[in-house]
Computed example of a mutant assay.
Amino acid sequence: MIKIRHAFLAALLPAVLAGCGVASGAAEVKVLRYQGSAGAVTFPELAEELGYLGDVKLKWVGNTTSGPQDIQSAATGQTDFGGAFDGAIVKLKAAKAPIKAVIGYYGSDKDTFSGYYVNENSPIKTARDLIGKKIGVNTLGAHHEAVIKEYLKRQGLTPDEIKQVQLVVIPPVNTEQAVRQGRLDVGTLGGVLKDKALERGGLRPLFTDVDLLGPFTAGSVVLREDFIAGNPATVKTFVSGFAKAVEWAQTRPRAEVVATFERIIAKRGRNESADTVRFWKSTGIAGKGGVIAAKEFQTWIDWLEREGEIKPGQVKAADLYTNAFNPYAGGSAS
């Protein structure tokens, strides 16, 4: 995920606001363009494989480079849906992008989470020990920066003290080595990279995002508001199928989910490895079928207001999402 630049948003919004939707009276869109992820299976792809999408088809247009890039593509009409960290959605909505989150798609739980790791002999034991230290993150202005600053705040550091904790952007594949070599004091690790690092030993967690926040959905998939208005039947089919795929993965044996992911990757023929999905443990999604909770946005609204990224009251959680199309929410809107 990359930080959303206000200058870029200012340039793209006129195109967004001009409208990218379906003309009045036109037939609904039934082929949805999307970006995937190399070596991974998205829930819409899983839904398609399981036969949950009915007459709606997916059209892969390439792989995304980040969450914010993915939702920007959806906002500008380059794709029909995209997903990102909820804080990035808040920022894009604050910039007047006409988007609406419709379902959660990733998060943290006891099996799937991100941790902030130090060498086992590191003198860093508490948040206060981080003053003047370096923490490696994959990017600024996204999930990990938000979690780290929330941790520091909850541990009693003042805004001036928090500013003294340096966040260093580093590719995730280089984080473990940088921590072991002492070039970073703390490194952010998740997924396969975390599992492999911990297998090698010598690292301990300072804290984890799930310890800090409890199980939570961290990111959502968005659609343009005009697309929702112009294609209600398609959106209902898409979100319902998506939700059923999430619930399927939440309740099926891990081996069955992994085998299905491997089958999907093999069938789609994108010249990619399925090695990563073999480490899959859980969806990380808190709500059944990806149902969104208001607190999952409010946490990051509060953070962005404290950071001065948005004005107090500029964005309301209720305006950011809807559960109206998710069958596990009983069809209730946000």
Score class of each variant (00 low, 15 high):
1 M>I: 04
4 I>G: 08
8 F>R: 05
11 A>R: 14
20 C>D: 11
21 G>D: 00
21 G>I: 07
22 V>I: 06
24 S>W: 05
24 S>P: 12
29 V>L: 14
40 A>W: 08
51 G>Q: 06
53 L>W: 07
54 G>V: 06
56 V>G: 03
58 L>Q: 01
58 L>M: 06
66 S>V: 01
70 D>K: 07
75 A>G: 10
77 G>R: 00
83 G>C: 10
87 G>S: 02
90 V>S: 02
105 Y>A: 11
116 Y>F: 15
126 T>V: 12
126 T>F: 03
129 D>A: 12
138 N>G: 15
147 V>Q: 04
160 D>A: 15
160 D>L: 09
162 I>H: 11
165 V>I: 04
167 L>K: 13
168 V>I: 15
169 V>C: 12
172 P>D: 13
173 V>T: 10
173 V>C: 06
174 N>G: 07
180 R>F: 12
180 R>M: 04
185 D>T: 12
186 V>T: 00
193 L>G: 06
193 L>H: 14
204 R>P: 11
211 D>Y: 11
212 L>M: 04
222 V>Q: 00
233 A>D: 07
239 V>K: 06
240 S>I: 06
247 E>S: 13
248 W>G: 03
250 Q>C: 09
260 T>P: 06
264 I>N: 05
271 N>F: 07
272 E>G: 06
277 V>A: 15
287 G>I: 01
293 A>D: 13
299 T>C: 04
300 W>H: 06
300 W>D: 01
306 R>I: 01
309 E>A: 11
319 D>F: 08
320 L>T: 10
325 F>M: 03
327 P>A: 01
332 S>V: 14
332 S>E: 11
333 A>S: 15
